[in-house]
């Protein structure tokens, strides 16, 4: 395990696209986390001169901050960035024919896949850590009550966010492995997630809608039920549905197994 992690680290340590993407995501998400409340407040008041009476609320108060931030970070647009990066890293191994060389040098085919799954895991965990750090900073500076119980009350949303990034990353790993060509793989990933699945989802019966992988990922964390939303009379789910977790986990395992299967059967 440690060895595979070291190998993956060696591969990306001088890969500027990886670090470029890491910086874009860090800066982008941090700006999102810190800017979202001022942005919403300004825009709700902004358009008309007669300000709507907004109930006092903060996105950054414990424990709801975890729900609010994970919902934002888990939007498909933001999930696509790490997924595209993973696709690129996987297809690179084919472009450079290094995957073949890795096997020749003595890695097993299973280790090849496992090392990439570790990479997806580390990328997902890093994004959770980024959210965690920002969440604590924002939460501690905006909450009146920072008692331990309150701070950790909705911590499980972090787990759901991790699952979202990880599952999406595993889909990217599968597509990259299947298609081998970077541009082609990225095209398929984008077309599927932005066009194909949403359309198929729209025309499917309700029971099937729940099963679509990206739809299930999207359902994991529902729109935060803030005071603002309640004002408009909408009520969103304030809990994580266990069935969605099961569906996403099942897809993640299917993506992983298919990737193992392809690499085992294929002539490299």
């Amino acid at each position: 395990m440690i060895k595979l992690l070291q190998i993956e680290y060696n591969k990306i340590s001088r890969y500027w696209i990886f670090w470029g993407m890491a910086i874009i995501l860090t800066v982008g998400l941090t700006t999102l986390y810190w800017g979202i409340e001022p942005f919403i407040n300004e825009n709700v008041k902004g358009p008309s001169n007669a300000p709507i009476p907004i109930p006092q609320f903060s996105l950054y108060e414990f424990p709801n901050i975890w729900h609010n931030l994970t919902y934002l970070a888990g939007m498909r647009f933001f999930l696509l960035f790490p997924a595209l990066l993973i696709t690129l890293i996987v297809t690179n191994e084919y472009t450079y024919r290094t995957l073949r060389q890795n096997v020749i040098d003595g890695l097993s085919r299973n280790e090849i896949v496992t090392s990439k799954i570790i990479l997806v895991f580390v990328i997902s965990a890093s994004l959770v850590v980024l959210l965690l750090i920002n969440g604590f900073l924002l939460g501690l500076s905006h909450s009146k009550d920072s008692s331990i119980l309150l701070v950790f009350e909705k911590f499980h949303y972090l787990g759901a966010y991790f699952l979202e990034v990880f599952a999406f990353g595993m889909l990217a790993l599968l597509i990259g492995t299947l298609v081998k060509k970077a541009l082609f793989a990225i095209g398929i990933l984008l077309t599927y997630s932005v066009i194909l699945e949403p359309i198929a989802h729209h025309y499917s019966p309700e029971w099937l809608q729940r099963i679509f992988p990206l739809a299930a990922i999207g359902r994991l964390i529902d729109v935060p039920n803030s005071g603002l939303m309640r004002m408009f009379g909408v009520n969103f789910r304030t809990y994580i549905d266990f069935l969605d977790v099961i569906i996403v986990l099942a897809w993640t395992i299917i993506f992983a197994l298919l990737t193992y299967l392809i690499i085992r059967k294929r002539d490299l």
């Binding site: 060696n10 591969k11 001088r14 890969y15 450079y96 024919r97 073949r100 060389q101 040098d105």
Partner: peptide, 15 residues
């Protein structure tokens, strides 16, 4: 077959 962006030494380290 090597990683084009890695130096000769880093490629050998990986191997």
């Amino acid at each position: 077959n090597f990683y084009p962006y890695l130096s000769a030494r880093n490629n050998l380290k990986l191997a």
